[in-house]
Amino acid sequence: MSEASELYQRLLAGDRRAAARLISMVEDGEEGAREALEELHKHSGRAHIVGLTGSGGSGKSTLACRLAQEYRARGKTVGIVCVDPTSPFTGGALLGDRVRMQELSGDPEVFIRSMGSRGALGGLAVAINDVINILDAFGKDYIIVETVGAGQVEIEVVKYAHTCIVVTMPGAGDEIQAIKAGILEIGDVFVVNKADRDGAMRTLADLEMMVETKPGGVGAWKPTVVATVALEGDGVEALVAEIARHYDFLKESGTLTRKIVGRMKAEVLAILSLQVSEAAGRALEDGGVASSLVDRMVERDIDPHGAAAELARELDL
């Protein structure tokens, strides 16, 4: 039996070490993971995927911990994926989200995985999606994906979560602007965390105003704003209720199917773009099958668009 097929069988039997190993294989881009993912796909599609995004320090990890506790109290199981930036220079990363989740650490029904945002050329998107699917097949009822609200890939991933929560905090005036500029569209639920701090009412009012004027057609979901004090757990029940209300809306309006289809298409595209960029990168390297294209560009004999077209023919895309 191959390593992968042994792993997925153990994983389906509830072995946490097997799940963890498979996640590493996926993160390292190991070919062998393919076989396991293919099997696991048949067992996934049950989890409610919740994205949690917002700037560093807004309280996402603390909130993820509280959400998980609330779900556990209701007898549900939880997977948490925390994505933190990898240094583009060294490839290293300091992953500290677990520090805020200590209260979960004695509970074997909560599976927490910290990920560095490594993986150029779209490898990150592929890896995060695979990790979500693994935890889904592993039987987690809720999968919470925490990402810093910067970086195209991170935003893409939470965008395709079933429910996307955007977290902000008082006094983050610039942040409200940032939300306006980019992530207002993707938020299904907005949270003003650290509501114990000065200026919380103001931030809440600003955000409510923005959310209310957010364009949306008839019958579209109306996002709401929830105030929380994640440190104390205040507002977490209300947040859980909003997440549930959003999921019900998705199911009743038929939007869930559209979201699922959207996520699947995005997954295929991410996988394919990764394969294409990797293959093209190899071909263009010194000694690669298309390295002469580079020489021709340098000599102004062919332009990058022409070279791309030739490369596509060469690679038989």
Binding site: A93, L94, V99, Q102, S105, G106
Partner: peptide, 26 residues
């Protein structure tokens, strides 16, 4: 981290059981 490793930090005051479970999940 500066040497290119992914470093996960547990926080203070971990019990042996909890940190072994976390090490396995990670």
């Amino acid at each position: 981290r500066d040497a290119g490793m992914e470093v996960i930090y547990s926080g203070l005051k971990q019990t042996p059981d909890n940190l072994v479970e976390a090490a396995i999940q990670e």
